[in-house]
């Protein structure tokens, strides 16, 4: 996968950090503002996909491979399950066991922010993995050099 032209690359350098930061903001403030784990995860995956589109293989090979995406995907799911099971210790699945805090602050609403974080990581890594898999799948079907269905 080659990159795009110089202009797209340079503006991606400037903008990519802001996109991923905004995705993290939506995930972490999901219990105070609209949004939440899923919407923020989609923005995270979109930012990573933009970087891969603009820079091509050199980013996908060095930093984010299929394996990293798969690992983060599993970690998000595990975090979400951990919150649920720790609530189970208190009697009911998903019971809140943290202090509730002030309305509108970041540290409030008990376990909801942690569950949001798990969902965000899972959705972001999952959608990014889907993007990478589609790119690799097109390469495999179009008879390119790397016909084994994975990004190198």
């Amino acid at each position: 996968m080659q990159g795009m032209s110089l202009i797209v690359k340079n503006i991606t350098r400037v903008v990519a950090g802001f996109i991923i930061l905004f995705g993290a903001y939506i995930v972490l403030y999901g219990h105070v503002t609209p949004g939440g784990g899923f919407a923020g995860g989609v923005i995270l995956a979109g930012g990573l996909a933009l970087v891969v589109l603009a820079f091509g293989e050199e980013f996908a090979r060095n930093v984010l491979t299929h394996d990293v995406a798969r690992l983060a995907d599993s970690m998000g799911a595990l975090l979400f399950l951990l919150v649920a099971v720790l609530g189970f210790m208190g009697g009911v699945f998903f019971t809140n066991f943290l202090p509730l805090g002030d309305v509108g602050a970041l540290l409030s609403a008990g376990t909801i922010p942690i569950a949001n974080l798990g969902i965000g990581i899972k959705v972001g890594a999952g959608l990014f993995g889907v993007f990478l898999a589609l790119a690799a799948f097109r390469r495999a079907t179009s008879g390119g050099s790397a016909a084994h269905g994975r990004l190198p």
Partner: peptide, 16 residues
């Protein structure tokens, strides 16, 4: 600011 930065890039990419 984000629109002013990205909108011409999108136009350039579409034209190319």
């Amino acid at each position: 600011v984000f629109l002013l930065l990205t909108s011409p890039v999108a136009a350039h990419a579409i034209a190319r």
